[in-house]
């Protein structure tokens, strides 16, 4: 099975969700985590993570701080903010509803009624 391209807007939610469950993480850690959770099904161009991170930071949904990684390397650590948590709740509800609707619309006819 070929890997999935990410839909517009989904990466931001994935990043927020990752930070919400894992706490502070560096960019590479976030990328790896998303790949793992998706069962390596998404085609993640890891570099796009950094564009998403700066976007989220500008919106005030995540904060960044320089720190030291597990193998003693200087790295930038990101964590979710209060506003980010709120945004994540809204986005998660939206995506759940959307996937629910898509699931029902695309369901085979015999399964309906």
């Amino acid at each position: 099975m070929s890997k999935m391209e990410l839909l517009q807007g989904t990466l931001d939610v994935m990043v927020l969700q990752t930070l919400a469950t894992m706490g502070a993480l560096h960019g590479y850690g976030i990328a790896r985590r998303i790949e793992q959770v998706s069962g390596n099904q998404v085609l993640l161009n890891q570099g796009t993570i950094y564009a998403a991170l700066v976007r989220l930071q500008q919106r005030g949904w995540i904060a960044a701080k320089w720190g030291v990684s597990e193998n003693n390397r200087k790295a930038k650590f990101y964590s979710i903010t209060k506003a980010g948590t709120k945004q994540l709740a809204a986005d998660a509800a939206y995506w759940r509803q959307l996937s629910d609707v898509m699931g029902r619309v695309l369901a085979p006819a015999e399964e309906g009624e």
Binding site: H26, Y28, A31, Q46, Y50, R73, A75
Partner: peptide, 8 residues
Amino acid sequence: EMAAHVEM
């Protein structure tokens, strides 16, 4: 930041 990423 990317240097750290590549190294990791």
